[in-house]
C-alpha cells in the first residue's frame, strides 16, 4: 500500500495531499466537494452507517488515506 504522493502540490508551501494535488483543478475540486458534501449531509442513511461503509471500503481497497 502506497501513500507516497506522486503529484505536486498546487498550493505554495503546502505538501501534496488529496486537496492540494487536486487544487491543480480548482473548479473540479470544488464540484467534488459539493457532491461529497451531499453524500454526507443528505439521504436516508445516518452518519454512522455511512462511516461504517466508508471505513469498510477503505479496508477492502487497502486505502491508507
Amino acid at each position: 500500500m502506497s501513500t507516497t504522493p506522486r503529484f505536486t502540490s498546487a498550493v505554495t508551501d503546502q505538501p501534496p495531499d488529496f486537496s492540494t494535488v487536486l487544487q491543480h483543478q480548482p473548479a473540479l475540486l470544488a464540484a467534488f466537494w459539493r457532491l461529497y458534501g451531499i453524500f454526507w449531509s443528505q439521504g436516508a442513511l445516518d452518519h454512522r452507517a455511512k462511516e461504517v461503509a466508508r471505513i469498510r471500503n477503505a479496508r477492502v481497497t487497502n486505502c491508507g488515506f
Partner: peptide, 27 residues
Amino acid sequence: RQHEISDVEVAALRRHLPEAEAVALVL
C-alpha cells in the same frame, strides 16, 4: 490493481502531460 500502479507508470504519464491535465486524467 490500483496498488500495482507504479511510480514509473505515473512518471511516464507526467512526462507527457502538464501536471494539471495529468491530475485530471487520473481522477
